[in-house]
Design a protein around this nucleic acid. Structure first.
Lengths: 214, 214
DNA sequence: GCCCACTGACTGAATATTCAGTGAAGATGT
DNA sequence: ACATCTTCACTGAATATTCAGTCAGTGGGC
């Protein structure tokens, strides 16, 4: 009985691993080809697996892609939670959060994925909800950090919620530009812009965030 | 000879009208179905025309959609220019510009189109350039209005370019949220957020932009 | 011996693109 | 003014291709 259970578990684990592998492959393909041009055969090829297997694990292509996005969103949300509850002063945590938003390269995986998802979310309720939850998580994280700062007397604002909303919208707009490689903006300038706005909004003296680096 | 020319012009005009009609139909279909799910047959049906005709006027579907976006971008850019060179104080013009950015409804045509185009631009150089030019036009317009305000002594900032960059990124982030119907944000709040940031950035007293309405 | 993850060939539908043909509007010649 | 010729916007059916999804079969591990 115990062994039977152990064996069954092991098999379940194998399936879980395979599913995770397929989701990861799907993500890679989507990053290269985009959500709408991703083919089931691409995911199969990337995993060196037959086309049929994809449908063995995921009923339809839509399910595969939706689950992939859900998985990614959950991963990102967990990361957000970790940052919000991290150590350090509110100033340091705010700086950390803002840095985390900056695309790590012109084709930062996360950003490419979510810009694609925004478009798909225009017509797909499920996708809209997924990206909305991710959005809400980051927003909430900014709100928590800002509120902490206000409570500690480090920040001054009468509406932390509104400030969080504005900073996260600004970061989305900036991240979009960096990811789309708009001329005249890069990662460094994005961080600088975020810093300036945060200082203005939170009654900080210019440069105080710049020196907050952990 | 003169008559011959007149006749020929008339034919050319017919073709221009038909092309414009097809581009408009393509836009409507894209708004409903999205860039990637738009079929040539949809555009044909919307125009009550045979599928063949689409390809008579546009070599491929890609050409059709790209030209449609180019046309829309040009229209928007022209509108931006008109606003920037309009009458009134810098304060009034800035307010007008910011209002123009706010989606007119949760499915504002312009916003839906460009959010879709951002995603497509991730992998299509041509589309990226088109949306980039539109972006640059609005950015430039903000810059001009802000610079005017600084010259007139109405605004205070040592870097009008950076302020324009930040405000336009903020507006993109907010417009995205409104268009995706994120909870906790609507058109009114978007305008309010933009107002607050502009006042902070330009050394205005709170509320001065609110009373700038033309 | 049975379960079940997996294969790979197959089907059928969706859909972009092509093309031969049509008719009306305009050009040309008388 | 008339007849004839030419052009060309347009049709609709044929074609070609691309793919998501299916299914009968296989083999390794419990």
């Amino acid at each position: 009985m115990v062994q039977a259970n152990a064996a069954r578990t092991s098999r379940q684990e194998q399936v879980e691993l395979r599913r995770a592998e397929l989701l990861e492959a799907a993500k890679q393909v989507v990053l290269e080809r985009g959500l709408s041009h991703t083919r089931v055969a691409d995911v199969a090829a990337a995993t060196r697996v037959s086309g049929g297997l994809i449908h063995y694990h995921f009923a339809t292509k839509d399910v595969l892609l939706t689950e992939m996005l859900r998985t990614e969103a959950e991963r990102d949300i967990a990361k957000a939670r970790r940052l919000a509850t991290g150590t350090g002063t509110a100033l340091q945590r705010l700086d950390r959060v803002m840095r985390e938003f900056v695309p790590s390269s012109r084709n930062d995986q996360t950003w490419v994925l979510w810009i694609d998802a925004w478009g798909a979310g225009l017509r797909d309720e499920t996708l809209r909800t997924i990206s909305e939850e991710l959005d809400a998580a980051w927003n909430e994280m900014l709100f928590v950090v800002i509120s902490d700062g206000v409570a500690a007397g480090d920040f001054v604002t009468d509406n932390p919620r509104a400030v969080a909303d504005r900073i996260s919208a600004l970061l989305d707009g900036l991240g979009l530009r960096v990811t789309l490689q708009r001329p005249g903006i890069n990662r460094k300038q994005m961080h600088e812009h975020a810093r300036v706005v945060a200082e203005l909004e939170l009654g900080l003296t210019a440069g105080s965030l710049a020196s907050a680096s952990t």
